[in-house]
Design a protein around this nucleic acid. Structure first.
Lengths: 209, 209
DNA sequence: AAATAACTGGACTTGCAAGTCCAGTTTTTC
DNA sequence: GAAAAACTGGACTTGCAAGTCCAGTTATTT
């Protein structure tokens, strides 16, 4: 159990970094596909081409491995804070962000992680927090910063940029996202597109000038 | 297995309606507290003061019991479609609805059911659908109908009432709801209140006249 | 080359929960 | 009062997965 966290004694054969990566990759994949309960340590060992003992040698136990895997996942699919072009006017940038955001949150991967987080609040409270910080929080902060700047420049009139950012992203989810979360059939593409446009228009109407 | 669904042969001792209710009540409670995997049939039988055999006699198997329990739950905590006072002007009614809605979706029960649904999309697809129809869909439809009427009367200017209803409810969730879903510490009460007010104001600003 | 520790593969232990079986008891209908 | 079916309680079967153990092997350091 402590082997995983100990500094290496530098005597004898060292742990293989490659195997560690393999295990982590397999775990990340399986967890995001089948969830925590749906993935056995044997599955992970097999998928990683490694013995079960080795998994335990590297990560101590399943729970710990889970934690490492999820925070890894967040970092890698880090929702881009820096892709925002701060100089673009809202009429150009806001629709772009809207489309990118909807695409992201409706992806099977994102939905899976979201579901895992909401279901491990008691058993693994840290997971949800890690995801929250690396995911949603980061995204909202980025938009809020943009809105603040546009407000200063006088292109928008927003008292509370952070609140406005939350409004915008939450609103965008709409029916389509909920249906996706519940595994229901998607709406017609035109309808989804129209909804996004309506959100953008409504947002700009409320906060313009 | 079929005993549960068969019409009673009306010979011999009939199944006790009371026990059925007890089982269902226990199941509903345990499922919404501990989730599907976290609740064993033994737990339910014990909590209902009944033998395990009786549970199986009434409901056939765990999965079926789960389905009945959840759809029951939806019906009972049925998000009121009819509590809407259609004649009230938006400036009065919208804030009321907002507060009631936020209170509802942040309740531990609602959060639990939501989490269960998003996590049983493969194993029990019907669950999520049942909840969706009896819960969110119903609520949105009710608001949409109100908005449509107010639009006709000329107190609001809304092209697509259904879309506007989705916008409103989704927007209201905001940071507070997500934090609740993730089991994170709540925001200061004043902040949450302020956010709700901002949403109401923003919505009315965008759709007034 | 000797010591050391990682790695393998497979057997093993432990614990849990779904679902079945059964013998005896109670309730209800005919 | 006899037949039928629900109910109890507890033993039982089955299956699964976490985690351990071990004997043999492989890689690495001194």
């Amino acid at each position: 159990m402590n082997a995983a966290t100990q500094e290496m004694r530098s005597r004898g054969r060292p742990r293989s970094e490659e195997k560690r990566r393999d295990i982590l990759a397999a775990a990340t994949h399986l967890f995001t596909v089948a969830g925590y309960e749906g993935t056995s340590v044997d599955d992970i060992a097999t998928a990683a081409g490694v013995s079960k003992q080795t998994v335990y040698s590297h990560f101590g136990n399943k729970e710990n491995l889970f934690g490492v895997a999820v925070s890894e996942k967040c970092r890698e699919s880090g929702v881009d804070a820096d892709v925002i072009e701060m100089n673009q006017p809202p009429e150009v940038l806001i629709p772009q962000i809207a489309r990118r955001f909807v695409g992201l949150v409706k992806s099977p991967e994102a939905l899976r992680i979201y579901a895992i987080c909401t279901n491990s609040t008691e058993s693994h409270p840290r997971i949800a927090e890690l995801f929250y910080l690396h995911g949603p929080k980061k995204t909202v902060d980025a938009l809020a910063e943009y809105l603040r700047q546009q407000n200063e420049v006088g292109r928008l009139a927003i008292d509370d940029p952070a609140a406005a950012a939350w409004q915008f992203f939450c609103m965008l989810k709409g029916e389509a996202h909920m249906r996706a979360q519940f595994g229901l059939e998607g709406l017609p593409a035109e309808e989804e597109e129209a909804y996004i446009d309506q959100c953008v228009a409504m947002f700009l109407r409320a906060y313009s000038r």
